[in-house]
Design a protein around this nucleic acid. Structure first.
Lengths: 256, 256
DNA sequence: TAATAAATGTTGCTTTATGTTGGATTATAG
DNA sequence: CTATAATCCAACATAAAGCAACATTTATTA
């Protein structure tokens, strides 16, 4: 007689899912409050069905091997933007609320936040929203409208009004250029307007920028640089910018 | 006249939704404060209707087999949906304007449209918007708001008002169930409202559904089935549905 | 209101899952 | 390589879940 599908197996899969694709027998048994033998028995059935693979001491969902190595590769070989993104992710606790604006660095930050739980995210970037929606009990609020064809961002009065509804713990921003006299700058007026708004609506303001932005010129300033609490980068900026940050009471945080 | 929808069944479905797609008989009975036998009896009915699957000790909503994130659900059973998506893409010329609603099938359709040029796309699905924005001179209009955590869709009055701005050549819809008496159905009232709206605002209406949807039960009808111009599927439906489509003047299109 | 139908609860019994034990196997440290 | 601890496996007793028949409550209708 064929073994009947069993709800315990469903529960095990749920645990595995939450744990990122793999877990130890011991930890599964503890989570479900059953004996390890029960877990083993059901895993044996799931394994013969091909749903999971048994390992000594644990189990993983079939096919999640590549993703693990990919993630490991990200950790081992971090490009500057990934290192900055990881640092920013460390600064943001589970359960926080945050604005994320548009930009290549913020897309990396969204990736780095993939294991955070219960975030409340407000963004006008389709890439950020896509990466963080439907994950880990996050709540994602996406500003609507026409998405710009070059970066997938929603701008304009509707996006501004949308963002105006929120107050968050963090605003995470990118910058196209930084210098000692003008502060933080962008190429686009619409982006800058949006950045100013979300800086005004959040408790802690973080700007993420790699070293290529130091003393680069860009036409529009983001706003008063003294508003920025943290500048996260992978290398120490030139002296004049370091001094300026001291005046702005902006703390420079180096990625590991 | 007797197989009337029973409210207890709705309650059970609600509990399942909240629990993430699956739950134990014992826990459902406790939550609803009824005997376990009552839960089993109603689950038996839901199971014969195809809405849920029975497991020993529990139950899960059909389709959430590897109850996982939306992004992983996209990858299960991909062949039929892939073929349907390619067929739908063939029906849509370059330069068209179209609504795309939310659903795993429509996400495949968005992928199949990756080589189309100059589309104007209106959607409330983050996955669709992400796949089609910043490509091939498309213009993408994304409805904003809070994205539902299980599928990344924006719903509610704001999404409706947003969609109401547009008139398009095509509406591409998905269905959770199809039968001869009730037509096309969905699990969710909000989804159905959005579907009705975009059907009313477009010239040609296409519903994409794989064979698993035939004679599957779902609680909310999408609207008058006679409004639907094309039903795209990978296999011919049962005779009663075929006859009903003739009455509705709905053309059945088989994927290659 | 009484008569009827539907849904739910209860009971005894069968099937299936789980916990426990002891011994075999496999990883890990020194 | 050996010693040690962790993990795995098989067998049995126990607990839990499923099922069917009947009793009881609740809802519907005349």
């Amino acid at each position: 007689m064929k073994p009947q599908p069993n709800h315990r197996q469903q529960e095990i899969l749920n645990v595995l899912q939450k744990a990122g694709g793999s877990a130890r027998i011991h930890s599964i048994a503890q989570t479900l409050d059953v004996s390890e033998e029960t877990v083993r028995r059901n895993i044996k059935l799931l394994a013969t069905a091909g749903t999971v693979e048994k390992l000594h001491g644990g189990v993983r969902i079939t096919g999640s091997a590549e993703e693990t190595t990919f993630q490991q590769r990200l950790q081992e070989n971090p490009e500057p933007k990934q290192r900055i993104a990881n640092k920013v992710a460390q600064m943001i606790p589970n359960g926080s609320s945050l604005f994320l604006d548009i930009g290549s660095t913020t897309a990396f930050i969204a990736d780095a936040l993939r294991d955070h739980q219960k975030l409340l995210v407000v963004t006008n970037s389709i890439a950020v929203a896509y990466k963080l929606a439907t994950r880990n009990n996050n709540r994602v609020f996406m500003a609507g409208g026409e998405l710009r064809s070059h970066d997938g961002g929603a701008f304009g009065i509707d996006a501004m009004n949308f963002a105006d509804n929120f107050h968050t713990d963090f605003a995470v921003l990118s910058a196209a250029g930084i210098n000692a006299t003008n502060g933080f700058m962008l190429f686009d007026l619409e982006e800058a307007k949006f950045s100013r708004l979300i800086m005004a609506k959040s408790a802690t303001r973080i700007i993420a920028a790699d070293a290529s932005k130091f003393n680069r010129q860009a036409p529009v300033t983001i706003g008063k640089p003294a508003l920025v609490d943290y500048l996260v980068c992978e290398a120490l900026p030139p002296d004049d910018i370091v001094n300026a940050c001291e005046n702005w009471t902006t703390e420079i945080t180096l990625a590991d």
